[in-house]
């Protein structure tokens, strides 16, 4: 029975991906991409990776989909270049060969991951009991710091290359009550995800994405207008604080223990939760700014 479900899900994922890749209508393609994201998240729940599934649903499908939808109308449709059938066929054949090669390569060796015994052995020292959080914020915190740096650079790039801003939706009588419900809920859920990330699926990235969803609801409802320099400034400062605080924490740990990102004995959980709390706010602010574009002063 579960196998039938898995088969249906796998077929569904591929089918929706084909729609996302080859649909002529842009909105249909983006819609299919979002559906694919949710189906993939479902499959990852089945594979016992709920942390990643949460992130894929919130960020991979939700936010990326929103970004693509924002741009779908604005991007000019480029005139279709007449591609020779031969080159399309050649690319198709190469892709088929590539798929075969990839499948054979993945299935030909039984993977013996080196990590699970190490993670199991060291999880007690990491300060948290959710192994994914332990990897992200303790064992491989350097990866995560650099990942925050990626968000930072993307934000700088979007600020340097400003685009026209998102027009808030026309305020109807239902929007304000909706925002009144959704925004507090998103704060609540994100706080819950952040706190629970130590022991169960969740963490700073999922929490940040949910909070960003609430922020976007505010922006789209027109309740938060980033035109005011103050609000834009606060949001930008929050976004920058992620890398700043994480970097400062790294310096502090190096000074305290002699190891970069090596938390003092017995205090790992406090450090991790503190860093994650700041990261949640910073990620949410960064994602809102990435979606909304930067403040562009149009000379008039």
């Amino acid at each position: 029975m579960t196998q039938l479900f898995d088969a249906l899900l796998a077929v569904g994922i591929v089918g929706v991906a084909v729609a996302a890749l080859f649909a002529n209508d842009r909105f249909a393609a983006v819609g299919a991409f979002m559906v694919m994201g949710f189906l993939v998240a479902l499959s990852w729940v089945r594979l016992g990776a709920p942390d990643v599934a949460l992130a894929e649903a919130a960020i991979g499908a939700g936010l990326t989909g929103a970004l693509l939808l924002r741009s779908a109308r604005r991007l000019r449709v480029e005139p279709k270049m007449c591609q020779s059938r031969w080159s399309v066929a050649a690319s198709g054949l190469i892709s088929i060969g590539f798929a075969g090669l990839l499948y054979a390569a993945i299935t030909s060796v039984p993977t013996v991951p080196a990590y699970p015994p190490l993670v199991a052995e060291r999880l007690g020292e990491s300060g948290v009991s959710n192994p994914v959080t332990a990897v992200l914020l303790n064992f491989r915190a350097w990866d995560t710091l650099l990942e925050i740096a990626v968000l930072f650079v993307a934000l700088v790039l979007v600020i340097v290359v400003p685009v026209s801003r998102v027009r808030p939706a026309p305020l109807g009588e239902m929007v304000v009550p909706f925002a009144k419900v959704v925004v507090p809920l998103s704060v609540l859920i994100s706080g819950h995800l952040l706190w629970q990330g130590a022991d169960a699926p969740g963490g700073a990235f999922q929490a940040g994405a949910v909070l960003a969803g609430g922020g976007l609801a505010l922006v789209l409802a027109g309740a938060m207008r980033l035109k005011k320099p103050l609000q834009g400034g606060i949001l930008r400062a929050t976004a920058l604080s992620g890398l700043a605080v994480f970097g400062a924490a790294a310096v502090a740990t190096a000074a305290l223990t002699g190891h970069l990102l090596g938390y003092p004995d017995g205090q790992a959980k406090i450090w991790i939760l503190g860093i994650e709390a700041v990261l949640t706010l910073a990620i949410a602010a960064t994602l809102v700014l990435l979606f909304h574009g930067s403040v562009r002063r149009v000379p008039k």
């Binding site: 939706a169 026309p170 109807g172 909706f178 809920l185």
Partner: peptide, 20 residues
């Protein structure tokens, strides 16, 4: 409850935007 709320609201928003 969330699905009901957001479905109703987004439907309302989309309709209003298309009317405008």
């Amino acid at each position: 409850v969330l699905v009901a709320l957001s479905g109703a609201t987004t439907g309302h928003l989309i309709a209003q935007a298309s009317l405008e």
